[in-house]
Design a binder for these strands. Structure first.
Lengths: 205, 205
DNA sequence: GCTCCGATATATCGGGCCGATAGGTTCTGT
DNA sequence: ACAGAACCTATCGGCCCGATATATCGGAGC
């Protein structure tokens, strides 16, 4: 799921790992403090898949060596040339490829529905179309309703149980109800929404 | 952290893995659906540490072959004897040892403070004393206050940003405030509490 | 009696994510 | 000039999860 977040950020701008982490923190905020121990392996995975490309910035200022977006054999050669120029301080700037953009859309429509995954998808909702958004929102709501039901049944079944467990479950019930109401507002906004959406596919003007 | 939950459950009754999972689901409910892929390795870990002991129930009724609590070489021999009696349907019933009880208290006072860990500790608050409880509750509150602050700053800094990210952060702010208030109530209850607490240390009457 | 089936029961494997750690570079204050 | 802070990439061990394998048990239906 971290791959979704990386691609979502890289679709806005080319960045290197360290910057990426900061951006992720800003956007996802409390929803997962992505650690380097996840970030770098994920970037390698994405590079292997061809979803991102890396070049090394020369540090001659902010001229990030423009990338044409998709890579040819030339880019690979370029990369290995610079890999020879070993010696840290060559920041590896990552850019998203067309494959990566396709992958991003694919990951966005994945229905996995835990707190984390849902939050991540929501954070990058701008990259998918309204039907997908509605599907995800409604699915999430259904999941929470189910959970609410289950917790409530467990709550009524055992009265006079451990007070801490009880407190935990009552609070969970309240939180879940609040979340469901929130989702309801988001769904309504989505259905009534004016169509000020960015193009879901194919950025790169 | 799953070890905490296992020990917390086993302190109430001797159980085998499958039952354990069901109990965990009841007590922790929505807070982590412990999977077998975590449960069995964790049980092995705990067994290696001497925190739990396993015997095999003969299925001749509820006579669970009483365990003396801590194990000698005899227990190991017993175990391997039964391991030779291969053919599943010999349920491995686990029981907590004195070492396990010490470990439980130790895990309970660990200050790790993410959603998961805090929730698990709260679910087993009955096994620790009031000072520890208050320490954990207040630490959690402090963490959430910090997070609230951070999210709020991020929220005011960037107006007119992506509406979905904005929605995410606003909702997080609300949820966090709600959680803080809830913690406040728990703290108050704890401070005013009549002393109807079970003995924190040394079960085994 | 027989078979099929769902629940009970234990266990492992690959892979993702995290915290800790390590090692190097550039910037900044003094 | 120097120390310390921030920047930057990377790996390692360990936990946790979902998928999968395997085997038994109790009952429903024929």
């Amino acid at each position: 799921m971290i791959e979704l977040a990386i691609l979502g950020i890289l679709k806005e701008a080319d960045l290197h790992g360290y910057e990426l982490k900061k951006h992720l923190r800003k956007v996802l905020g409390p929803l997962s403090n992505v650690s380097f121990g996840s970030l770098y392996p994920a970037l390698n995975r994405l590079e292997r898949q061809g979803a991102v490309t890396a070049v090394v910035a020369d540090d001659a200022g902010p001229s990030t060596m423009p990338m044409t977006g998709s890579l040819t054999g030339e880019a690979a050669a370029f990369r290995s040339r610079l890999r020879a120029t070993r010696g840290p301080r060559n920041k590896k700037v990552y850019g998203i490829t067309r494959i990566g953009e396709r992958r991003l859309v694919e990951l966005l429509s994945d229905p996995t529905d835990d707190e984390r995954s849902f939050g991540m998808k929501l954070a990058f909702f701008r990259w998918c179309d309204r039907p997908t958004r509605l599907r995800l929102l409604e699915r999430r709501r259904a999941t929470l309703l189910e959970r609410l039901d289950e917790t409530r049944r467990a709550l009524t079944a055992r009265e006079g149980d451990d007070p801490y467990v009880q407190a935990l479950m009552e609070h969970d019930t309240e939180s879940t109800m609040s979340d469901i109401a929130w989702l309801g507002r988001l769904i309504a906004r989505e259905q009534a929404g004016d169509d000020r959406t960015r193009e879901p596919t194919g950025g790169h003007p």
